[in-house]
Design a protein around this nucleic acid. Sequence first.
RNA 1: GUGGCUGUAGCUCAGCUGGCAGAGCCCCUGGUUGUGGUCCAGGUGGUCGUGGGUUCGAAUCCCAUCAGCCACCCCA
Length: 424
Amino acid sequence: MNLKYRRLKGTRDILLEEAERWAWCEERWADVLARYGYGEIRTPVIEPTDLFFRSVGEGTDIVDKEMYTFQTKGGESLTLRPEMTASVVRAYLENGLTRQPGTLKFYYMAPMFRHDRPQAGRYRQFHQVGVEAIGSPSPVLDAEVIQTAMALFDAVDARGLGLLVNSIGCPSCKPAYVADLKIFLKGREEEIPEAFRGRIDANPLRLFDAKDDAVQALLREFRPITDSVCPACREHHAVLLQTLTDLKVPFEEDPTLVRGLDYYSRTTFEITALAERKQSSLAGGGRYDGLVEQCGGPPTPAVGFSIGIERTLLHLGDEPVDPQRSRQSVVDVYVACLGDEAQRFGLVAADLLRGFCRVEIDTSGRSAKAQAKSANQRLARILLTVGEAEIAADSLQLKILETGDQRPVARLDLLAAVKEVLEG
RNA sequence: GUGGCUGUAGCUCAGCUGGCAGAGCCCCUGGUUGUGGUCCAGGUGGUCGUGGGUUCGAAUCCCAUCAGCCACCCCA
């Protein structure tokens, strides 16, 4: 069909059975997050562009080429959020929560926007469930946050996942490593494919993200970041790994896991689908101890993660939906109406039942046969039929679909009769 | 930004080396003046993605274009 309007590239409609699957996951996630002490946060999808420039960082793909940014008539630059952490930190400061005692724990399930080329498990509007735990520097919190992520996957029966962890140091040790790395890379520049050379100056750590074999081989000649961090970071990382072991959370250390965002310090982690080759990264997170201060607040440690909902559902074996088959939702009573007046009569009757059970009234004007067929497709247990004769007698025909038995019921006795059938 | 694959009915698809646009499912009507899950009969529904070219003739061949999907880069 020649459609007048189509959805924008990289966006999706979620409906019928698929919407039910989403709701199923969201209910379970909300339950898990409550158990881990998280409260919900909702923030605007739109923020000042500078918030993401300064937090996510220039030199990252997100900021350099993936943001939906536009100007208002007043000349202000706005951006559809490409991720949630910056917004949560902004809201944390703006709502005066810096003096709250203990650790503030927020979760969100919300849409994000990145202007990327769409492909399987990647959309321009996509959704994340994630958490931000603000206020504690403890590696034990890192472990709990990671455990929370694993629990979210477990809650929807996601299997076959692997956890990668790393430490990328803090402001007292990371800069020296980055500087050394840059010098090393400068000296070997000709061995690096052209596409990646720009990163040497802009953001040398991001070379670790490159899947290019030559780049990876070269980086293996340089000392891993994990060996170069300061004693405090080393201790932090050791406690995290020990705590994960105590919690029996299996993990794998990956010294090349630097992640695409600038604000991370110390712990970074990623959860991947082991079997899938493509879009295998289902979740990512880490510690961002400097971000709150950088956004104008007091020095405040924090840690968080986000899980890609579309990718998680894809991993669960989210089959494409057949709209024809998923049309029906289950109903207890189906009211077939033969004629316009019967529809009005039927709706009044349906209204008597709605406080007690699920009722669908058929106002299509189709044949009695077609309406009865729909009742069956909707898995109704009772078919009520209204025609001229019933209206005249102030009654309805009540048919028990399982047995085929049918009898007239006075309208005033309808609720009692329906109750008797459904409960018996 | 760079590649590859695919566009035919609401859905899934067939349509060979050009020759009357099809099937299954769904939907509607009837068989049963007003009754379902099975039958049977009939029916609705298509600018063959779009534009151009070749040809007596194009869904089919050629070119362009758009869209979708997939992959690269990177990420969730």
